[in-house]
Design a binder for these strands. Sequence first.
DNA 1: GATGAATGAGGTTTCATTCAT
DNA 2: TATGAATGAAACCTCATTCAT
Lengths: 216, 216, 216, 216
Amino acid sequence: MAEILRHATEVFCEKGYEGASMRDLSRATGMSLAGLYYYFESKEKLLYLIQKHTFRTVVDTLRQRLAGVRDPEQRIRIFIHNHLEYFLANSEAMSVLSHEDDVLRGAAGAEIAAIKREYYRICVGLVADWKRGGSVKSGAANGGRRHANDAEIRIAVLSLFGMMNWIYTWHRPRTDGDAGALARQMGDIFLYGLSASNGRGTTKRRKRWANRTAAH
Amino acid sequence: MAEILRHATEVFCEKGYEGASMRDLSRATGMSLAGLYYYFESKEKLLYLIQKHTFRTVVDTLRQRLAGVRDPEQRIRIFIHNHLEYFLANSEAMSVLSHEDDVLRGAAGAEIAAIKREYYRICVGLVADWKRGGSVKSGAANGGRRHANDAEIRIAVLSLFGMMNWIYTWHRPRTDGDAGALARQMGDIFLYGLSASNGRGTTKRRKRWANRTAAH
Amino acid sequence: MAEILRHATEVFCEKGYEGASMRDLSRATGMSLAGLYYYFESKEKLLYLIQKHTFRTVVDTLRQRLAGVRDPEQRIRIFIHNHLEYFLANSEAMSVLSHEDDVLRGAAGAEIAAIKREYYRICVGLVADWKRGGSVKSGAANGGRRHANDAEIRIAVLSLFGMMNWIYTWHRPRTDGDAGALARQMGDIFLYGLSASNGRGTTKRRKRWANRTAAH
Amino acid sequence: MAEILRHATEVFCEKGYEGASMRDLSRATGMSLAGLYYYFESKEKLLYLIQKHTFRTVVDTLRQRLAGVRDPEQRIRIFIHNHLEYFLANSEAMSVLSHEDDVLRGAAGAEIAAIKREYYRICVGLVADWKRGGSVKSGAANGGRRHANDAEIRIAVLSLFGMMNWIYTWHRPRTDGDAGALARQMGDIFLYGLSASNGRGTTKRRKRWANRTAAH
DNA sequence: GATGAATGAGGTTTCATTCAT
DNA sequence: TATGAATGAAACCTCATTCAT
């Protein structure tokens, strides 16, 4: 039952997986303790379902939004925007998702890990594309340079994940803006660094992107 | 006892604060359950001590390393390096530190929050300096530019924290390199973005930094 | 469950509230430790329920027995008899009731205190009536006597409570007789003092009472 | 150490024997936990010492005060006064004494029980004397009546103890008067009953007593 | 004399879970 | 489909007590 999952997500978010008791969930959902067990065979399974549903939604939405967009930068920006949008709209779910990483054991854990890997791979692909694209754009200046190192990309992607996932730690809707604004800033930092928001010669690029995303 | 704190940190890291039981800690430290309570009046107090000690160490070491260094970029790189170095060397402690953010209530919680704020403020200062300094370097081209927006800096700093703190999630010593390597990459990303590791015109800056840090 | 309450009462009586552990109660009732907590949210709540039930029963039974009886002396004797009867039949409950006076905090404590006050007030009323009535009976000889002092009545009533409540300390069913016999003796002492059982001029009164209570 | 015993008495009184922990005692006395064990081999022994000291004092003082007084009524009044005086002056000690009746096991328990029995016997003697004396005074009216029954005396004495010991439950120094006043009232009730304070023909006796105690 | 350090046993309470209905 | 009743295990913590110093 989606209703139950939603409430459970909230509770897991507030108290953490270990900290949330089945009684808490029972109270939050209005369903009896035993009733919960009719639907979900264990607390762990509940977490599994939440994580699976959340992550699948993120990945699937992402794929839809990426479809048809070719520009490497825009694709990365879409990735970030998609992530943050979902994150902020379902911050509870994402918090659970991020935190309770290693709770699930066995098959369930493997399945979740698989979805996460899929998501990660998509991002790696986007970054690799951008890097390849970048070398084209920047033309001969990039001359005989080696291809973007896998290890470098890995670090970059995981850094990006860190930026985005850490948000649940500090985001205040009032002052920090919505997913759009945050995505732009984080995208700038990820792609061009602090200088991006600084006028250190990235103005043109940002303009270009702004134009693009306006159409988005 | 430092010995006990070290073991406790490990256990908290492995299982999380809620997930770790005092019995676990007892087993890990080799001290009796009651013995633990002789030294630490409660599980919460234990967490408090760990967090306090860890964070204070980080902040104090940072201040020492910053002392005498004037160059804004270098100062930011020192910040990152310091953070990651401690993070990787004491990944357990940092994990506990990062995660169990809202467990502590009352005075203890406030004290920890204060140290964290202090740390955060230092970083904000570094970034603001860099941004000011940047306008000088980039010369007249930056002419009538507005001052770096506080909100922008906030987002940037918190993004940096995210990058760095998320590490405990993915870092594999074998393949991901040490604090020095990671700090360089994350510094690049933070300051110049993906392009940094890409040869997109940041080469010179990186060289300069590399020279400096060689001396460091 | 009444069954559980009864067993719990016994245990509280034997070991006192502090001395009785939930494990003891679990053993005595045959119910699992966790089972107890299913019914009673805490040890304190258990004590509250026992005290409430016991005291209410005493007060309610007393009111029924007083209904319809007009003679002031008889009413006092009924009070004593009712108290002792319940006390001896449920000596455990009464012991708990009497002793664990200040354990309960907050609302629960207030509620119990209220019932006790109600009980006390009834007794005060009976004694005041008897004293008023007494002056009538003893006729003109008592002429300009002052009204019975509130303070005096208070001391008298509390002394009576002492006599009766202390019983759990020494009563041996074999040698000390049943509630009826004890009530008669304590009533005599309370109303006429040692002299009563002594033939010091109280014989007539006692005879009268004996006749009345025979019908009772 | 008397100092320690005094503090311990206070704590036992406030929290009861079971409820008071050795740590509480340590805190109250300012002596280390282990230090307490240097002086008293166990918590139980501590209780034993308190009870022994308290009871011995009561009994010995009583004997001194009874010495030389011959009038049976006065002797009883002295008993009551002595008891209440000590009780009110050392209400904590007496509370502990009264409550923790059955905690002590073995030799210690037997010793305390012996002192208590001694005390009880004294009172029984006083009452028996009074009754014998009384039958003489009341003259022929008492005709061929049997001697005061042992069982009757037992109940009477224990009732008196109840009256007196229950005091810790309700006594408020401000409104309830001091040991002298209370002893007079309780003496009246015990000897002559409610009527005593009522003017129901006991006035003369009370006057007599008043004269006697004035000399006391 | 007196204590800091340490402990095994046991305290109250809550946990995830089951099962008859 | 859903639940009230019940449980074994384990949670955090405190107990009276000991012992080397």
